[in-house]
């Protein structure tokens, strides 16, 4: 269909983020209704923990690349196959990839720690791409030190993102924000409640 405002469900390349939400929800969805706990939303904690949502895409050349990555309340890795189907990697699968990669790093066969010119054209394997994502820094924290002190890894890392902008966007979105001081006023709308009937928007329209 040629009209850009009309989209097809199968057109995952276009839908992108929607398909990820269909699979796993989004960062806020762990929050259960009416828990009344106020401050400590799962998202606030997530920001402090710096987990990530990563979409990795298989390449026709055989390797993998990071299409998108952003902060999330829990770390989730979505793998997009060549035919557009997507699945979430289980924790066991993630652990397995990380451990296999750790062994390769130890014996010097991982592409992550090789100089760029010696990496074959097939591209990075899944474990390698996974560890070079920002999520990888958390998933594989126990091998993180080995990687972050390795100059080849530093040079290779951004190459595993689909585009330089995906990489810089990802780095930016994880940057810690600076604090500021002021005398402040709060407590507005503290007495509003969701007492209305029907679907529960307080300010529906």
């Amino acid at each position: 269909m040629s009209k850009k405002y009309i989209k097809k469900l199968s057109d995952f390349a276009v839908l992108g983020g929607v398909s990820a939400v269909l699979l796993t929800g989004f960062t806020g969805c762990e929050q259960k209704p009416q828990d009344g706990s106020g401050q400590d939303s799962s998202f606030t904690q997530a920001n402090e923990k710096q987990n990530a949502f990563v979409i990795i895409e298989k390449q026709s050349t055989g390797g993998y690349t990071i299409v998108d990555e952003f902060p999330s309340s829990s770390t989730r890795i979505v793998l997009r196959e060549l035919d557009g189907t997507e699945r979430i990697l289980t924790q066991a699968q993630i652990d397995q990839f990380v451990q296999q990669e750790a062994i390769k790093i130890d014996n010097g066969t991982s592409n992550l720690t090789k100089p760029q010119e010696s990496i074959s054209n097939g591209g990075m394997g899944l474990g390698e791409v996974l560890l070079s994502s920002i999520a990888g820094a958390m998933i594989g924290s126990y091998i993180g030190n080995k990687l972050f002190n390795n100059n080849n890894f530093k040079n290779n890392r951004s190459r595993n993102y689909k585009s330089p902008s995906t990489y810089s966007k990802s780095v930016n979105s994880f940057k810690k924000a600076k604090a500021a001081k002021a005398s402040r006023k709060s407590g507005f709308f503290g007495n509003k409640s969701g007492s209305r009937t029907g679907s529960s928007s307080r300010f529906g329209g």
Partner: peptide, 20 residues
């Protein structure tokens, strides 16, 4: 506001999109 899960998760969906 804190007492409406519809409002809260609608806002958090928008936040998710802004993150992306």
């Amino acid at each position: 506001i804190s007492e409406s899960i519809e409002d809260e998760n609608t806002v958090k969906l928008l936040q998710h999109i802004a993150n992306e």
